[in-house]
Amino acid sequence: MNRIEELTLKLIDEEISDAEFAELERLLADDPQALRFHASLLDLEAALLARLSRFDVAPQTMAKIREMVRGPEPEPVRVVERRQPQRRPSARRFVRMALAASLLALIGVGVLYHQQLGSTAVDARVSQADEGVMVQRGEQALPTRAGFDLAAGDRLDVPANAAASVEYADSTRLIFGPQSVATFQTGRGLTKRFVLQTGALVAHVPRQADGAALEASTPHAQVRVLGTRFLLAATPADCRSSAVRCSVLRSQPGRSLKPAGPAMN
């Protein structure tokens, strides 16, 4: 066994010291024959791992995909009963209740006033985000995790090998795949809107109430969804979607939204 083989095997077995690794680098830089020995031992290692590490990832992969599409099952809620000592209503309690009611009324008026001015909330929040998922809000790049509330104009950036889910108040769920970029917008009335600039997503849209819809745009087309599960991809050249009960609102001349498969429901 030559020195290159010895050092490469130590590298494979994770037993190489820093000094030995530096020596290996030097040997590889100087000698094409050394490089051949090194590469062929690593090829052998990869081939052995592929040949003998037999596993079946199908069940786990399917479980992951099903959870992405359907969303996690709700956790059971534990109800803890607390016995409160019975008290007789007092005058002070009535005053407190009246004050609370007034405060609630004030908040209600405030909310109505705010809605009239045009709210920036999009009623959606990030329900799951892998490491590296960011939200660009104005000039700020905000690291994102579950529970992050989205606002109009927020741009969700999903890096390679990551995924993120966004959930609206009506349980509409969007699962963004790797390298997806989407911007969330306020829609008219009860409409939810977002633009998928690039990447792909799986959407699970429950049947929408009267006047409500999900509007998804890509650079080339726009869909209005009234309730379905669908896949949507935005690529530089085209836009594809497989969906049901969705209508194309508009597309650029020469570009079209191609249904990628038959209806889902």
Binding site: E45, Q60, M68, A163, G177, A200, L231, L232, A260
Partner: peptide
């Protein structure tokens, strides 16, 4: 040359990525 569990994770991720881009 990852260990078995890391390799499994990457293989799974490949199929999840492919599913998300199936369209």
């Amino acid at each position: 040359l990852y260990d078995r569990s890391q390799t499994e994770d990457v293989v799974q991720q490949v199929f999840v990525n492919a599913f998300l881009h199936l369209a």
